[in-house]
Computed example of a mutant assay.
Amino acid sequence: MSEKVVRELKKDQEIVSAYPVMNELRTHLKKAEFLSLVKEAMEVERYKLFAMEVDGRIVAVTGFKEMTTLYYGRFVWVCDLVTSEQYRSHGYGEELLRFVENWSKSHGYERIALSSGLKRTRAHQFYESKMNYDRVSYVFKKEF
């Protein structure tokens, strides 16, 4: 039987160890920029990075942060959630998102939110059908 564990990544070496999996979602980031952004987000935004490991190998990664807005009140925002392509359809993404949900509840949050790219239709099916998330808004951005 496989040994499966979810652990928080805080040290530089731990953060960098998640890069190959996170890079499947955030393909635009180079390793050094990834490390720098994660560290800044941890310091400034209370960002947390967790990895699911199976037999010592990272198979899925999530990053989330605690937030407060007038729209949602106090909630957890899932910034990143990705399972390595070779490990998809094994339930790891579901298990990792349930971990975030349980973490949120145990820290006094009543809701969780995330956004997903328009073209990620399989991810949308996962969130809506398997995880019972509601589609409630669009996210807009403008680059300068």
Rank of each mutant, 00 (worst) to 15 (best):
G93L: 01
S2T: 14
I58S: 03
M1W: 05
Q125V: 08
W77P: 02
S36T: 15
E33M: 02
Y47F: 09
T62W: 00
L49S: 02
A113I: 07
V38W: 00
V5Q: 09
S89P: 05
E33Q: 13
D12M: 10
G56H: 09
A113Y: 01
R98G: 02
Y127L: 06
A32Y: 06
D12E: 14
H90E: 15
T69Y: 04
R135S: 11
K65H: 09
A51N: 13
G108R: 14
V16Y: 01
M67V: 08
E45L: 12
T83L: 06
N132I: 10
E94R: 07
F34R: 08
T27S: 10
H107Q: 14
Y87Q: 11
W103M: 05
H28K: 15
A41R: 02
K142W: 07
E8D: 15
A113H: 05
E128K: 15
N132Y: 09
Y133N: 03
V21Q: 03
K119A: 14
T62S: 02
E53V: 12
F140S: 08
K31S: 11
Y72H: 09
G63Q: 06
L49R: 00
M42L: 03
L97N: 00
F50P: 02
D80N: 09
R98C: 09
T62G: 00
G91D: 12
V6P: 00
P20K: 05
P20Q: 15
Q86V: 12
V82M: 02
Y133W: 15
V16L: 07
D12R: 08
S104R: 06
S2F: 12
A113Q: 05
R122T: 15
Y109H: 11
R74T: 08
M131R: 01
K4S: 14
V76E: 09
V38L: 06
F50V: 15
A18M: 08
K30P: 06
V6F: 05
Y92M: 12
V54K: 03
A60D: 02
F99I: 10
E110G: 13
K130N: 09
D134A: 07
D134F: 04
T68V: 11
V76N: 01
T68C: 08
R26F: 01
Y92V: 12
V44I: 09
T121I: 08
V139E: 03
E33D: 11
L9F: 06
L9V: 07
L81K: 00
R122D: 14
S84M: 13
L9I: 08
E95F: 05
H124W: 05
E66L: 01
K30H: 12
T121W: 07
L96Y: 06
R135F: 06
H90K: 14
S2D: 12
M1G: 15
E33H: 10
V5E: 12
E33L: 02
H90D: 14
K65Y: 04
Q13L: 08
Y127K: 01
M67A: 12
R7N: 15
R74L: 09
